[in-house]
Design a binder for these strands. Structure first.
Lengths: 238, 238
DNA sequence: CAGCAGTCAAGAGCGCTGCTCTCATTATTG
DNA sequence: CAATAATGAGAGCAGCGCTCTTGACTGCTG
């Protein structure tokens, strides 16, 4: 119920917003160098020249600070994905798929700890709040954009490289929900294959980042490119 | 240089082995209830009725205890995979693939924290020692066993549902190394597709366990089954 | 059989963590 | 201008991983 317009905040409000940003910035720096487990409120406060207890005026707990970083990370990845999707020609489904995969992997390699924060094992007692979901769905929606033009043009699911078996009941309902959210009107089997490609994409990136590929597929660039093309065929992109 | 035969250890040696096992057992219990981050040496010692410093006689650091748990987890998963593979009929490639996937997912769902320990984000400063790799490769080798009978019978990579493009140079070398390790004689494109299926399998399981599927594919049983069949076709299983 | 070397659990203590509470100061509001 | 709310500082609590020292115990050897 403040009479102030949001454009002209009070000095205190501006200072608060500024400090909140600085705290997140410093926390992200520590996250990048020491990982989520090494993120310490006291160290952040120390670096900012304040005392640790003062930090609790801005984030009520360490988990809340982590949640803020998680949302920021989802949004940063969502930005990268949406930008790559928008830059690609709408008619070239496979090209857009390539660009999208490359953008996602590129962001992950550039921000490994932030990627681990959102796609790695969740911190034990930590339950992702509803607020993160809206940001998390953005990258999935970008993938849905590719899917929308995949199977529909040439006659529903028949364009798939192999005849797709009909979906069992529960799965049909689930894919319908997903379709409504990310690619309305897309038939269930196409959605299902897209979701399989989605899990493959992030499974590969996670394996690369988390060290499952060392010693074998170590420079994973070629394998990643190969997988992207194979999965493009798998989801029915021409 | 002890004159004792390993079968008849001294009382001290047996006591040491026993306590080492008990420590790992209690640590695994805490891991299952509080996660890796919540694993506390002091709590383990407390539960065992000893003082924390005594525990350092058995594991020089918390990381060493975690490493022991990681190796145990890889071995447990390897056991489950090998048992499932051995139980399936050798001639039925797709049946063996199904059994293998089900066994791996089943173990993961039954031991989520241990799964997160080995396939989740690695703890920051922690570098997986060489000793873990030997155990980690077992489940991959089990998957290779399925692959060995996949594309070879009907004429190399031509049995694949879609013509597989030739592998780029580096990837060809990498798949050759992998083939030697898990499925000797298998052509590169078959190996590459198998590795893609591998990343898809674990990507899906990780998504399910780490909460990326809640609200959409939440009971993931049907989707998992569908993905297994689709990937079976993808890697060329009849 | 006595003595000695090696092994062990225990205790105290260091520096760190997240978090809470109180208190003085400052900015905003009626 | 005075009341109110927000803010930062400080002290303190319980917990953590880890180190070092101390005293007791075990099993081998002279």
């Amino acid at each position: 119920m403040t009479a102030q317009a949001s454009a002209s905040q009070t000095a205190r409000q501006r200072a608060r917003a500024e400090l909140t940003r600085e705290i997140k910035h410093e926390a992200r720096r520590q996250l990048a160098s020491h990982g989520a487990e090494g993120l310490s409120l006291r160290a952040v406060a120390r670096e900012l020249g304040m005392v640790s207890s003062a930090l609790y005026r801005y984030f009520p707990s360490r988990d809340d600070l982590l949640t803020a970083l998680i949302i920021d990370a989802y949004d940063a990845l969502g930005d990268a994905a949406e930008a790559a999707s928008a830059a690609a020609a709408a008619a070239d489904g496979r090209g857009r798929w390539r660009a999208l995969c490359a953008a996602i992997r590129g962001w992950a390699l550039a921000h490994p700890h932030e990627y681990a924060l959102i796609y790695g094992s969740p911190v034990p007692g930590y339950q992702a709040p509803q607020a993160t979901i809206a940001s998390a769905v953005r990258v999935v929606r970008a993938l849905g954009g590719v899917l929308a033009g995949a199977g529909t043009g040439v006659g529903a699911g028949d364009a798939l490289p192999r005849p797709a078996p009909p979906l069992p009941e529960v799965l049909a309902g689930q894919t319908a929900i997903v379709a409504d959210a990310i690619a309305p009107g897309t038939p269930g089997p196409v959605i299902a294959r897209g979701l399989i490609a989605w899990t493959q994409l992030f499974g590969l990136i996670s394996f690369e980042l988390f060290g499952q590929l060392v010693g074998t597929l170590d420079p994973a660039d070629e394998f990643f490119g190969y997988a992207v093309e194979q999965m493009a065929g798998f989801i029915g992109l021409p």
